[in-house]
């Protein structure tokens, strides 16, 4: 963060760094749980994997109070309008994790009804592989978002991060 300690009770830093530090440690996710990936997302929030360690335990079911959307599941064309509407309702800066194969690329659903990757209609920052991804892999995705915020990148415009499935 570029901290400089001048005396016992003062630090100096840049305001952008300070705000970025605060933002990255209080990412409130909007759980866009559409299908089975949502079960792993619940596990990610639960006591065993515990995303509270990274400051994002407050799952907000209102898009107006959240700044990270975890799209977890198969997005159909009919549902895509809902996902976009919820994304539009989130305040800036807003980040998107595409969780799992279906969300990232349509996955095994190569059919007429499923959108072949949500990046066709919303900007995505991190893609997490797996079907479904393990919760610890989703934590990795969250950390990548935190690193992006710490670097001062803009949501949707920075380089995409693709997280492999370690198992």
């Amino acid at each position: 963060m570029g901290l400089m300690k001048t005396s016992e009770s003062f630090i100096t830093t840049k305001i952008d760094d300070m705000i970025g530090w605060a933002r990255k440690n209080s990412l409130w996710p909007m759980p866009m749980g559409i299908s089975c990936c949502a079960i792993e997302m619940m596990s990610f929030a639960g006591p065993r994997y515990d995303c509270a360690r990274f400051g994002s335990e407050a799952f907000r079911f209102s898009p107006r109070q959240s700044d990270l959307m975890i799209v977890a599941g198969t997005v159909t064309y009919k549902m895509s309008h809902v996902v976009r509407k919820i994304y539009d309702q989130m305040p800036d800066p807003k980040w998107v994790i595409a969780m799992g194969a279906c969300t990232s690329s349509g996955g095994m659903y190569r059919v007429y009804s499923v959108v072949q990757g949500i990046d066709l209609f919303i900007p995505v920052d991190v893609y997490v592989a797996g079907c479904p991804p393990r919760p610890d892999n989703l934590i990795n995705g969250l950390i990548q978002i935190q690193k992006k915020i710490a670097r001062g990148e803009k949501p949707g415009q920075s380089e995409k991060v693709y997280i492999q499935d370690p198992s």
Binding site: Y77, K78, S80, H81, R84, K85, Y112, S113, V115, L120, F121, I122, P123
Partner: peptide
Amino acid sequence: PGSLPLPRK
């Protein structure tokens, strides 16, 4: 193609 519209990006 085009029978199911996507939201604008």
